[in-house]
């Protein structure tokens, strides 16, 4: 086993999680509810949510400042009907998120299958390469891409953002699909071949359906990451390709309007829905981020 195998990042669920958990955690459960670690956890969760709750609360404030003057939905009205630029930025973000995560999901899922199931020259190289973008500071990735695009004279805009987002999405999909493959019994593949399935049939009828949950969670994760990225996008965007985070940045820097509070609530709400949709994969996601 080479030391450059990033699959350790994934907790390979070698047993049905539920069964193991009951025997392990309920018998030896720490019954002291107010133990030190539980208190720290509760305080940390409060710490994590307080800023979000403050912003959400003030999105319903009728005045601009942080003095509470009464309930109002006017910032939501402004968000919906009077924020044309914001929606254009959102549309850009949306186009890039969908296209880059679709490409990343296809490329990374195929690569995960290739690397987990077959051995060939260059396998280790690709695996290591797929891991590095996750740890490098975003500023470095952004700057190196900016310099690269300038060197090859590719104009900065939607296309360069698409390339950058696909690049940073690949590792996450790769890890999530790899985790799914670790659970998969590959003797099924031999069975399929013994029964006379062609390579294409094996791929479409056996491999694809069985790794679908990993692929879907990878797709959703990369859509989220693409919608959320600011630093890398900041460097590779050009005129006319403002994304939502870039727009929020300009709002923060050059005059805050409470519309941003209303926008925050909408975004937080969609993240809550996403976390709910992915609730069965949260453990795998926790292990890969």
């Amino acid at each position: 086993m080479s030391s450059l195998d990033p699959s350790f990042l994934i907790k390979a669920p070698t047993h049905p999680v539920g069964v193991y958990k009951v025997s392990k955690n309920q018998v030896f459960k720490d019954h002291r509810r107010f133990g030190f670690s539980n208190i720290v956890l509760v305080l940390t969760i409060l710490f994590l949510f307080t800023p979000l709750i403050v912003v959400i609360t003030y999105s319903f404030n009728s005045s601009k400042g942080m003095m509470w003057t009464g309930f109002s939905l006017k910032w939501y009205a402004a968000l919906l009907f009077d924020s044309e630029e914001l929606w254009r930025a959102f549309l850009n973000s949306f186009i890039i998120a969908i296209s880059s995560s679709a490409v990343a999901t296809v490329l990374a899922s195929l690569a995960a299958v290739g690397i987990k199931w077959y051995s060939f020259k260059g396998r280790q190289f690709i695996q290591t390469l797929s891991f590095l973008p996750m740890v490098l500071p975003e500023v470095i990735i952004g700057i190196s891409m900016l310099i690269f695009f300038t060197a090859i004279k590719l104009p900065l805009g939607m296309f360069s953002i698409f390339i950058a987002h696909t690049t940073f999405n690949l590792p996450f999909v790769f890890l999530l699909v790899s985790a799914r493959l670790d659970e998969f019994d590959f003797t099924i593949l031999e069975a399929a071949r013994d029964l006379g399935a062609s390579e294409r049939q094996t791929l479409m009828k056996v491999i694809v359906p069985s790794i679908m949950p990993g692929v879907m969670s990878g797709l959703l994760m990369s859509i989220t990451m693409s919608l959320e990225d600011f630093v890398i996008t900041f460097f590779v965007s050009g005129p006319g390709s403002t994304t939502l985070p870039l727009y929020v940045y300009s709002m923060i820097r050059y005059g805050v309007s409470p519309v941003i509070n209303a926008l925050s609530f909408v975004l937080i709400l969609s993240i809550i829905l996403l976390a709910f949709a992915l609730r069965r994969f949260l453990k795998v996601i926790a292990a890969s981020s």
């Binding site: 949510f49 403050v54 003030y58 989220t224 959320e228 923060i252 925050s264 937080i268 993240i271 949260l282």
Partner: peptide, 28 residues
């Protein structure tokens, strides 16, 4: 016993747009 809920509570702020989170701190 509520691992999924706790994971969600950690992951929700984590996935929220980083600029929104920074902005929330500026507002505070």
């Amino acid at each position: 016993r509520n691992q999924t809920l706790l994971l969600a509570l950690i992951i929700i702020p984590f996935w929220t747009n980083s600029l929104i989170r920074i902005y929330a701190w500026i507002a505070i």
